[in-house]
């Protein structure tokens, strides 16, 4: 494996690791409300106390409402709470402060829920929706593409016409329409699975076409022809000779599709067709920005959206690296 590929893969694995264990990295549960702190700005970390002494351990000040009924908050540094690491309450967390203090490094939402925690939990949901949908699309695409490429003739014609049907659709429009046909009365977990299935089911056509192309050229290669003459079964040929040839294409496709499908989930949730309260998804968090007062008043609500840029950059660079590697594979 060449080095840029390894580097970006490592970055991505690290990112996903953090999100996978979001329960540990987040200071609170995604649904935990602090009703005294609706739309509170990010908590500041202090190192210098009131007496002017510097300490290694950061602390936060108590939060109280500004008294002019504007709904704003200010710090009350007569009460301070030290930030502790590896705290264990009912669950263990990477960091936190002692009650009644609260630490919300990315601010809070309308119900006083910690935005950092919601971001971590939401990112887990969106990212894994993208990953699973990609897996699904690629599996379907692989089966269809290999069948079409290997068997040719009528199978090929039917499958590829079907793929064309799907490719000819403006797919975000279709996704939106299809999502609304399906039951909405589902738990967040079921909605998650539904979204994954839906995105995957609509997205199989492009990988299928690419894989078919690789299989078509691959099956003309000498060792496949020889294998066939020696009486190998179709299944054997597909598994032992054809499948290894399409791995590269599948991986490169995956790196391209994952961010696209993460975005699909985000779009659906943004439009109110994804997972609902109290579960967080990046789309839900971004959706709050459709509200005028949030967009204009609370800048910290932008952070989850902006964080998508580095994430997608990592995927983009990995896809690039994969593609470059693919070009060097002698076919």
């Amino acid at each position: 494996m060449n080095s840029p590929l390894r580097r970006w893969l490592a970055v991505l694995v690290a990112i996903h690791f953090i999100f996978l264990f979001c329960g540990f990295f987040a200071p609170y549960d995604e649904a935990e409300q602090d009703r005294a702190a609706s739309y509170a700005p990010p908590t500041k970390l202090h190192f210098v106390d009131v007496a002017g002494r510097f300490g290694i351990r950061p602390f936060v000040c108590a939060r109280k409402e500004v008294e002019d009924s504007s709904g704003g908050y200010e710090e009350d540094c007569s009460h301070t709470y030290a930030v502790r690491f590896f705290v264990s309450g009912t669950k263990s967390h990477l960091f936190g402060v002692d009650a009644p203090g609260r630490i919300s490094l990315l601010g809070t939402d309308g119900l006083g829920r910690d935005q950092l925690s919601r971001f971590l939990f939401g990112a887990r949901l969106s990212l894994f929706a993208g990953l699973l949908a990609t897996t699904l699309a690629l599996i379907v695409g692989l089966i269809v593409g290999m069948a079409a490429g290997f068997y040719g003739s009528i199978v090929d014609t039917v499958l590829m016409r079907l793929a064309e049907l799907f490719l000819a659709l403006p797919w975000i429009y279709l996704l939106l329409a299809v999502r609304a046909f399906l039951p909405l009365h589902l738990s967040p977990e079921q909605t998650f699975l539904l979204l994954v299935t839906l995105i995957g089911a609509i997205g199989w056509a492009r990988p299928a076409r690419l894989i078919r192309g690789v299989v078509l050229s691959g099956k003309q290669r000498n060792f496949v022809l020889v294998g066939r003459n020696l009486g190998a079964t179709d299944f054997y040929l597909l598994r032992r000779h054809i499948l290894p040839q399409v791995y590269g294409v599948v991986l490169a496709q995956a790196a391209l599709l994952v961010p696209q499908y993460i975005l699909s989930e985000i779009t659906l949730s943004f439009l109110g067709l994804g997972v609902g309260e109290p579960a967080a998804s990046l789309g839900n968090l971004l959706g709050a920005l459709q509200q005028y007062h949030v967009l204009t008043s609370y800048w910290w609500m932008f952070i989850p959206g902006i964080s998508l840029i580095p994430l997608f950059l990592a995927y983009f660079l990995m896809a690039n690296a994969l593609q470059r590697r693919l070009e060097f594979i002698p076919i």
């Binding site: 649904a31 409300q33 009703r35 119900l111 909405l184 009365h185 589902l186 738990s187 109110g272 609902g276 309260e277 109290p278």
Partner: peptide, 18 residues
Amino acid sequence: TIIQDDLKQIGIKAQVVP
């Protein structure tokens, strides 16, 4: 969502389905 949280206090698990 607020009701859900309130009911959690008395041991009831309510699920919000928008």
